[in-house]
């Protein structure tokens, strides 16, 4: 009987993989808020109400200068959005957050109100990894939520494998690392060794506020300030944790797989 049950169950389910990126991106939850936009020109003179409410000190206003928000260290609690009297910091509702350079996550000055989205890899790397990317994941002192939502990408709804992206067991089989966590001192050696074990050329992806800048743990003595102090990082994906759609967008963007797609 069970064989028939299994087949019936399978037939009933049909294909559950989303059409994205060929179709539009699935909607974020209505209370999610997405990315942030910072218009420092709107700041009231002398106001710095948003600075003390930020739990990770991601917002600074040096002297009387312009407001700066480091989206890399942001945990998207939106306390600053609520605190701002001039609506200089707003939620965009956009799931796209990944950047190739750390400075592209600094928001505030004119022309840099929003994150500068990641560009695709250059010629040779794109030829090497564009159709097949094998990643080794290294957890280094985080909270396991980034890992959980990376795992979700492997489920049938998202089906990461259809893009040629796969997580492998050995760094020797990998083209790069996906790092989560601020890098605890107790994981430093293991991370370095894993990085060295990946053959050149290799990519490093820093996933989540911790891996980019320490997140909720930034400044604590047992941890570093993210991965980029220890290994060169090629892609930063902000969030605490990033929505699976944000992670997928970052990976596809880096591999140039969103160009001309409805979900871009």
């Amino acid at each position: 009987m069970f064989a028939i049950d299994t087949i019936f169950h399978r037939l009933q389910r049909g294909c559950q993989t989303m059409r994205y990126p060929d179709g539009p991106a699935p909607a974020l939850p209505d209370r999610h808020g997405g990315g942030l936009r910072v218009d420092s020109a709107k700041c009231l003179p002398g106001c710095s109400d948003c600075v003390p409410v930020c739990p990770t000190r991601a917002i600074t206003r040096p002297g009387k200068g312009r407001l700066k928000l480091d989206l890399g260290n942001c945990i998207f609690c939106a306390a600053c959005v609520e605190a701002c009297p001039a609506k200089a910091i707003t939620q965009t509702g956009d799931h796209r957050l990944a950047a190739r350079r750390r400075e592209d996550l600094q928001l505030g000055p004119p022309g840099a109100e929003q994150v500068r989205l990641a560009a695709a890899l250059d010629g040779k790397l794109l030829r090497l990894f564009g159709r097949s990317l094998r990643l080794r994941q290294v957890s280094a002192g985080g909270c396991n939520a980034c890992e959980a939502d990376t795992n979700v990408l492997g489920t049938i709804g998202w089906d990461l494998g259809r893009f040629g992206i796969q997580f492998v067991a050995s760094p020797r089989h990998a083209d790069g690392l996906l790092i989560t966590g601020p890098v605890s001192r107790n994981m430093e050696l293991a991370l370095r060794k894993t990085y060295e074990a990946v053959p050149d050329p290799k990519l490093v992806i820093a996933l989540g506020a911790c891996a980019i800048a320490g997140g909720p743990f930034s400044g604590l003595p047992p941890v570093h300030h993210g991965a980029s102090g220890l290994v060169p990082v090629d892609l930063f994906i902000p969030g605490c944790p990033p929505h699976p759609l944000t992670i997928l967008d970052g990976l596809l963007r880096m591999l140039g797989k969103l160009e001309g797609k409805a979900g871009a």
């Binding site: 909270c143 980034c146 959980a148 107790n186 605490c240």
Partner: peptide, 30 residues
Amino acid sequence: YQHRGVERALLNGPHRRSLHQAETLAGDTS
């Protein structure tokens, strides 16, 4: 290997960040 020193970070709190650190003691048990 995942030691981040959260208990010690909570000392002299509650701080602005304490709730977020409690939520990330174990991220799947926020």
